[in-house]
Design a protein around this nucleic acid. Structure first.
Lengths: 341, 341
DNA sequence: GGCATTTTCCAAACCGCTTTGACAAACCGA
DNA sequence: TCGGTTTGTCAAAGCGGTTTGGAAAATGCC
C-alpha cells in the first residue's frame, strides 16, 4: 500500500494525505482525523526510504561500535548505553543504525555512513587518546556526539563524559585514608582516553601523599574478567603485594575477587577493592548496600543524554557545542576496610 | 556529490557510472576502472536511501531487542550476538537497524519495520513460549530468523537454536552421577522458551532416577547476578539445602558463588555448580581449565549463523525453512565434585 | 451581492538512484 | 562493401514519498 493507492482510496490527493499525516496546518481537522483513522485501519505507513529521500533527512542515528582486534571483544557497556539511547530515539521517531567493526577500521565505517547519507548523526564510542575520528567527522559536517572525550581540541565538539580523573582521584584518596599505600591499578587498555584520565587521577592522589606509582602495580589491559584475574593474580604473587585494588569495572572486579579467593584472601578485610561501577542492568553492584565500594555513574543515563544532545544538535545546529562532564557518585560498600599488616 | 554531478565530471552518463560501480557487464573494463578510481578519489558513494528506493531493497536487517519492563534490563548476550551478526552483515553490505523496546511492545516495532519497508529481514530475539510475533511476521511475508524457537508450528519458520533440553538433561545427569540428589535449578523467567526447555531437560533427568523436582529448589527469574544471588541465598538457608546448582548463565553463577562465599562454602567442594556458558567475550569461563563446569555454545557464533541464514533467505526465498539445533559442548571445570555429606 | 481573504485541496516538480529499451559504434564474416 | 552481431553508452521512466505554487471553495466584510 503506497501513498497513491491510499489517497485514491480516500478520494483525496497524495498531497493532502501526506499533510494530514504529517500534521501540517493546511488541512481541515476533520479530514485529518479521517485520514489518520483510515491509515491505522488499513495499516498504511509512509515508506521510510522514500520519505527520507524526499526530505533529505534519514531519521536514523549511527553507532559504530568497535570490537578489539585480537579478542574480538565487545565492551559490555554497549548493551546498556544503546538501551538508553534507543529509548530517546524511539520517542523521537529515529532509528538506530549499528555497525560493528574491528578496532581501527572505524574510520571507514564513519566515512561510509556520512557519504552515503544513511544517518543524520553519529555517536562516537570509546574515544582514544587523540582520536582521528573526531577530526574526520568535523570535516564531514555531520552532527555527532562523543561518549567520553579525547584530547583533540576540546572546544569544537559535543561530548558527554564522566569525570574519570576526579573519580579515580577520590577513590584513591579513600584508600589512602584507610592507610593503604600499596594500591594496584587495574585499568583499561592504554590509548583509551578514559583510561588515561583515570590513571592520572590515581597518580595525582598518590602524589598528594608524596607517593610514586609502582609500575608493578599498574596494569592496562582489556577489561575482561579473565585479564583482570590474571593481572591481580600476578600482583598478589609478587613480593611487594598490593593491599588494595582500584579497578576500572565491575566485570574486572569479579576476576580480582576470584584471584583473592584462590589465595584464601577475603575482600574488604585482607585486601580492599574499589571499582568504577557503570550500573549495568544485569550486573548491579548490590542493592542498598553495595558489594563494592565504587565510583558510580549510569552508562544507560549517559546513553540517554548523548542521544538527547545529538537530536538537539540535529534539530537546530547550535553554534556552541554541548559539553557535559558528570561527577561520579562515590558509594561505600563492603569491599573496603582499613589496611591490615 | 550525487550521481549526476559525478557522471558529468567524468563525461559519462549516470547510467554508465551506476553500472560501472555496480559491476554490471555492459561496461568496458577500462571505463569501469576509471570510474572506480574517480569514485574513491572524489569520495563519491551512491546515496543509500535513493538506491534503496530504486531497487526496493533496503539493505538493512532489523533487530528488535526487548528490555524487561520492570527492571529495564537488557540481556547481556545481545552485545555478543550482535557482534557476530554484524560481522556477516558488514561483509554482505547490509546495515543493522536496532530497535530497543520494552518487553511486550515488540509487536508494534516489528509491524512498523515491516510496513515502512525499512528492512529486508528481521531477527527475532528471545522467543517466548508461544510467541505471537512469529505468526505476525509470517503474515507480513518479511523474511525472518528466530534466535531460539517457540512452540508455534515449528515447521513454518527458520530458526537457529541450541538444544537446551539435552544440554540441561546432560548437565543434570552429570550432577546425579556425582551423587547429588538435591539439585537446585536457577533458570530464566518463565515464559521464555529456552527456560521451559531447560526445565524440562532438568526434570527429565531427575525422573530418570526416579526423583521429582522440589519446588523449593527451582527459581525462575531475570538472569541477573542479583536475582541469582538472592535465590541461591534463600535456598541455602532452607532446611533442605541443595548440594548442587544448575544455573542458566555465567552472570547468574557469579551471584551464586557470592552466596556460597557469604556462607563460607567452597564451590566445587561443598557445593557443585553447573552453568550454561554463552561464551561471552568479556566473561570467558576460564581458559584451558574452565572455572565452571558448563554446557557451552557460543552466542556470537549463533549471531553469525542467524545472519547467514537470514541473508540466504533474502537472496533466494527457499521453500523450506532452515532450522538448526546445535548441540552444546559439555565441559568439565572446577565447580563440580562428588557430593559430600 | 461583490470583492478580498482565508481555507482546503491539488498538480507537478523533485529527491538520487536503478534499470529498461533504444541507439550508435565497433566488429564480424561473406 | 555490406548486413548482422556484439559491445558500450545513453535518455527516460520509475521507486514512493514531500513540498512548492496555484486553483477552487469557503468565508468575511462592506
Amino acid at each position: 500500500m503506497n501513498l497513491k493507492q491510499f489517497s485514491q482510496l480516500l478520494g483525496l490527493s497524495p498531497t493532502t494525505v501526506s499533510r494530514a499525516l504529517g500534521g501540517y496546518p493546511e488541512v481541515k481537522e476533520e479530514t485529518r482525523l479521517r485520514v489518520r483513522e483510515a491509515a491505522i485501519r488499513h495499516g498504511y505507513r509512509p515508506n521510510r526510504r522514500a520519505a527520507s529521500l524526499a526530505t533529505g533527512r534519514s531519521m536514523a542515528i549511527g553507532h559504530v561500535i568497535p570490537t578489539t582486534l585480537n579478542h574480538e571483544m565487545v565492551n559490555p557497556i554497549f548493551a546498556d548505553f544503546i538501551a538508553g539511547a534507543g529509548e530517546i530515539y524511539a520517542r523521537a521517531g529515529y532509528d538506530m543504525l549499528l555497525s560493528v567493526v574491528p578496532d581501527g577500521d572505524e574510520e571507514r565505517a564513519y566515512r561510509q555512513m556520512a557519504d552515503a547519507g544513511s544517518v543524520d548523526g553519529l555517536i562516537v564510542h570509546g574515544p582514544r587518546d587523540a582520536d582521528p575520528r573526531i577530526g574526520l567527522l568535523q570535516k564531514t559536517g555531520l552532527p555527532f556526539v562523543v561518549h567520553g572525550r579525547a584530547r583533540v581540541d576540546e572546544t569544537d565538539y559535543s561530548y558527554v563524559d564522566i569525570d574519570n580523573y576526579r573519580a579515580f582521584q577520590r577513590a584513591t584518596d579513600l584508600l589512602l585514608d584507610l592507610g593503604h599505600r600499596r594500591i594496584a591499578l587495574l585499568n583499561g587498555v592504554d590509548g583509551m582516553d578514559f583510561a588515561r584520565r583515570r590513571r592520572m587521577g590515581f597518580e595525582k592522589a598518590l602524589a598528594g601523599r608524596g607517593l610514586t606509582p609502582l609500575p608493578d602495580l599498574m596494569a592496562s589491559a582489556e577489561m575482561t574478567e579473565h585479564m583482570a584475574h590474571a593481572n591481580a593474580a600476578r600482583m598478589l604473587d609478587q613480593s611487594v603485594k598490593p593491599t588494595a585494588f582500584l579497578v576500572s569495572s565491575l566485570i574486572m572486579a569479579i576476576g580480582v575477587r576470584r584471584a583473592l579467593e584462590d589465595r584464601g584472601l577475603r575482600m574488604g578485610r585482607d585486601v580492599s577493592v574499589v571499582i568504577h561501577d557503570d550500573m549495568l542492568s544485569y550486573l548491579m553492584n548490590g542493592e542498598e548496600v553495595p558489594i563494592f565500594t565504587a565510583t558510580r555513574s549510569s552508562v544507560r543515563a549517559a546513553g540517554r543524554r548523548c542521544a538527547e544532545v545529538l537530536l538537539a544538535q540535529i534539530r537546530s545546529k547550535p553554534d556552541a557545542p554541548i559539553q557535559e562532564v558528570w561527577e561520579c557518585e562515590l558509594v561505600l560498600g563492603g569491599s573496603t576496610g582499613p589496611v591490615t599488616t
